[in-house]
Design a protein around this nucleic acid. Sequence first.
DNA 1: GCCGATTTCTTTAGGCTTCAAATAATTGGC
DNA 2: GCCAATTATTTGAAGCCTAAAGAAATCGGC
Lengths: 163, 163
Amino acid sequence: MLDSETKAVETPEDHAEELRLWLRLLTCTTLIEGEVRGRLRQRFDVTLPRFDLMAQLDKAPDGMTLSDVSKRMMVSNGNVTGLVERLVESGHLDRRTSETDRRVQVIRLTKLGRAEFRRMAAEHETWIADLFVDLTPKDVRELMRLLAKTKASAQKSAARRRP
Amino acid sequence: MLDSETKAVETPEDHAEELRLWLRLLTCTTLIEGEVRGRLRQRFDVTLPRFDLMAQLDKAPDGMTLSDVSKRMMVSNGNVTGLVERLVESGHLDRRTSETDRRVQVIRLTKLGRAEFRRMAAEHETWIADLFVDLTPKDVRELMRLLAKTKASAQKSAARRRP
DNA sequence: GCCGATTTCTTTAGGCTTCAAATAATTGGC
DNA sequence: GCCAATTATTTGAAGCCTAAAGAAATCGGC
């Protein structure tokens, strides 16, 4: 068997397909994210990061620490500090220092915060449904599967670099 | 045929699957984007928006107007103004007012800008390949197809709201 | 109990991003 | 040629975001 027949080891590898995939993934996300951001602003005068933070807290009735939030939202600590500050200011969040560990701040939705979030979330869900409306249930399942695989692959790759 | 048997028209529609799909899409993108941003910073001390802008210009040897760039990158005009300002300042971009329409600014990569971009792009491509390495060629094709469908669906939905 | 390492959070500096309003140039109808 | 509408860009205010450095509290050996 000749070298030239063995999987083209010598040629500089062509990753154009993966690159195109990444750009398409990014385009889809940017498109949908922009649409959601605009609607949140128009309908509720709220920003996407605020909405996302409230969404995290809505799933945690007992509250979360800032670190939890920062990990879940995949943003920096400092970012969360400012975000929380503004949401406490506007009365949507309650923030208190943990009894057992005075480094830790526990934040919760206030009654107002929860009520407003639920109202927004209900409408938000219909927007998402509309944005994905042309996908069949099978498309959705298949996308879920492939994105799960993508996420796993990317996490492994990230871990290889930063073990 | 009873009403309760006809596609559950009365029940508030359940869009939980689409919501989960959106969150997974967002997670994948955030994960990869964060990884790319970090590597660009570490290896080349450049930001992702700067890289993206240079990527657009690399594909347009005759230059682009700021509006073109803003549409392609799906960001606001004001955003591009500042980005370009900094890249002109650092010698990567050349900017001139159009001869035929004095409202228009045409920007191009400088020699330095092009050289640096090519160097970064080559490495960038290997990062992307590594991030997607666990996907088979078939996975990639299938994802491309489903994301194209998603993009079309989202664009239609956006157009319905803002015709 | 003490002290170095770690964890949690804040601060700082700089850059990115949006929206809305303002500026400047062009176009089209008359 | 004139003027209203449109188009291209800039500006300003506010908020988002990161990385890195710093402050405060806790933890783990010893």
